[in-house]
Design a protein around this nucleic acid. Structure first.
Length: 574
RNA sequence: CGGGGCAUAGCGCAGCCUGGUAGCGCACCUGCUUUGGGAGCAGGGGGUCGGAGGUUCAAAUCCUCUUGCCCCGACCA
């Protein structure tokens, strides 16, 4: 491709509202343009990357024996009503009516559609197991789309659905998909990690997420050094402490803490470590109006764990400040578990603190030297906190580390959630109708593009892993427009590169070298060749890898073989 | 949804407070010079100032309504 005939929509300055690097760089490199909140147009350069990711995913899915289908993005309400999700799915499901006032939605996922297809088409155990996938745009009406393509409302996803007659067959395909995903992310050239995960509103029991590691990731994942234990922080179990609670040593007393609300403020004001302070969170309950959750000041509540408590209303919602003031007569920053009159559940670690400090349920006052059993009843306990770095893994494989990740893949063992609701059955060997068992396997294709940039960029721009670079090589001639002999050499060389199967972008614009270098770096091409009159005289061409600091001179005659060898070393440029 | 912010040329911004009919940098077009890291000079094109209504002799500027976009939202308990 020649830049003179290509939409090089690079920008020197990024639009002011782009926050994360991948969003800024995708705009600056001319890969995407925003059309509406969370909705983007892919420009030629961006689409090339997207298609490369897609191709790798497709190859590996095909290789694994999955069959590609394409299902509509517009879905009739009836199927969603049949599965029960028409009512369960919140406002993320974009609903609308056609001219006949029939209800439809834009598909955020396709379990209902595939299950409907399969119940019609698959009749015999001889057709199983089967795995169908598609690469399709999905639409989820996120409350707050952000970070560009990373959390968009419309996004490209590969979703696959497998069907089985036995649990063992599901297990086999699930493990196969786990391996396929590992191959895919390895081929993409990304640093990633698989973790056990929550199944969220898709349903099912066992599930794993695949995360691309990046500091800007919205998810936190935990893992041990030897990698035996790896989980999303949402799911990671905190170790149940074995130690005994120390004996009380202090008397309970009221202290004035005017204007001190946060744990940090109280800790600083009273000179007490955050771990000696307990915080009390009031959430809406199921049997009772409110439920109190008590945590150590230095710990965070884990929403997923809290939602699993029968006493806590799902989804978890916090009591409003007005409500708290109405019931307890103080602001949220002064709540404490003593004489509160609201059922409470304490985290294991919070129940082991003695002589603790907490809110006094009176504005501007806290209690110190408080002790369970002596000053207030022994609490019900549960694991409701996020693990912290240094906690022990539940499987005994060591201390936990915490890293940020971007979720790019998720595999689920769905079981019979959808097949039972939609009555998807087939006959087994004995002629008996059996409800199908399902698995589902997603990959965020468009998100991978953003995640790859988050993981691979520098001050000059994107640094593509070779497998998904829009072009492999930038060919930059210096002042070609005024040198006929350079032109006579470069154009045939460009064709030779193409004929050698190298994806080359020839910068034949009438631009100064600095502009061409800057653009090639911004759009992140892994390799660069600079052709000049100087080199022509010396019989050399200049090579520089995107991550290299120095140029190297290559004999012209060897240039193509040299580039081929570079392209042949996949790990080398990552 | 709650809170906050911003809408002026393709991008980044000024002008608004104190009304007088729109400007800067980059990008774009033409010419000349330049040419190994985002060139210089000269000339030029492009904006219903998000939209509607109001006040006024006069509105980007003041007022009302509206739309869009961005940011923050347990960790105040």
């Amino acid at each position: 491709m020649r830049t003179s005939q290509y939409l090089m929509a690079t920008l020197r300055e990024a639009p002011a509202d782009a926050e994360v690097s991948s969003h800024r760089l995708m705009l600056r490199a001319g890969m995407i343009r925003q059309l509406a909140a969370g909705i983007y147009t892919w420009l030629p350069l961006g689409l090339r990357v997207l298609r490369k990711v897609e191709a790798i995913v497709r190859e590996e899915m095909d290789q694994a024996g999955a069959q590609e289908v394409l299902m509509s993005g517009v879905q009739p309400a009836e199927l969603w009503q049949e599965s029960g999700r028409w009512d369960q799915y919140g406002p993320e499901l974009l609903r609308f009516q056609d001219r006949h006032k029939r209800d439809f939605c834009l598909g955020p996922t396709h379990e209902e559609i595939i299950t409907d297809l399969i119940r019609r088409e698959i009749r015999s155990y001889k057709q199983l197991p089967a795995n169908f996938y598609q690469i399709q745009n999905k639409f989820r009406d996120e409350i707050r789309p952000r970070f560009g393509i990373m959390r968009a409302r419309e996004f490209l996803m590969k979703d696959a659905y497998s069907f089985h007659l036995t649990e063992a067959s599901l297990q086999a395909t699930y493990h196969q998909m786990f391996a396929v995903y590992t191959t895919i992310f390895t081929r993409l050239g990304l640093k990633f990690r698989a973790v056990i995960a929550d199944t969220g509103n898709i349903g099912g029991k066992t599930s794993h997420e695949f995360h691309v590691l990046a500091d800007s990731g919205e998810d936190r994942i935990v893992f041990t050094d030897d990698g035996h234990y790896a989980a999303n922080i949402e799911l990671a179990e905190a170790p149940v402490p074995k130690e005994q609670r120390p004996q009380p040593r202090q008397a309970m007393q009221v202290v004035a803490t005017p204007g001190q609300h946060t744990i940090e403020e109280v800790s600083h004001f009273l000179q007490i470590p955050a771990g000696q302070i307990l915080k009390t969170l009031l959430v809406n309950g199921t049997d009772t109006d409110l439920v109190a959750l008590v945590l150590r000041g230095d710990h965070e509540l884990n929403r997923v764990k809290a939602e699993q408590l029968p006493q806590v209303a799902t989804p978890l919602t916090f009591a409003s400040a007005e409500k708290i003031r109405g019931i307890l007569g103080c602001s949220p920053g002064s709540i404490g578990p003593v004489n509160m009159g609201i059922p409470m559940i304490a985290d294991h670690s919070a129940s082991l603190v003695s002589d603790f400090t907490c809110g006094a349920n009176t504005e501007g006052q806290h209690l110190t030297g408080v002790n369970w059993q002596r000053d207030l009843p022994e609490p019900a306990v549960a694991d409701i906190r996020n693990v912290v770095s240094g906690d022990l893994a539940p499987d005994g494989s060591g201390k936990l580390n915490i890293a940020h990740g971007i979720e790019v893949g998720h595999i689920f063992q769905l079981g019979t959630k959808y097949s039972a609701a939609l009555k998807a059955t087939c006959l087994d060997e004995n002629g008996e109708a059996k409800t199908l068992i399902m698995g589902c396997y997603g990959i965020g294709v468009s998100r991978i593009v953003a995640a790859a940039i988050e993981q691979n960029h520098d001050e000059y721009g994107i640094i593509w892993p070779q497998a998904i670079a829009p072009f492999q090589l930038a060919l930059i001639p210096i002042n070609m427009h005024k040198s006929q002999r350079l032109r006579d050499a470069v154009i045939p060389f460009y064709h030779d590169l193409q004929n050698a199967g190298i994806e080359v972008l020839l910068d034949d614009r009438k631009e100064r070298p600095g502009v061409m270098f800057a653009d090639a770096e911004l759009i992140g091409l892994p390799h660069r060749l600079v052709y000049s009159e100087r080199g022509l005289d010396a019989g050399t061409i200049e090579y520089k890898g995107r991550r290299d600091r120095e140029n190297q001179e290559i004999p012209l005659a060897d240039a193509i073989a040299f580039i081929r060898s570079k392209l042949g070393e996949p790990g080398k440029d990552l």
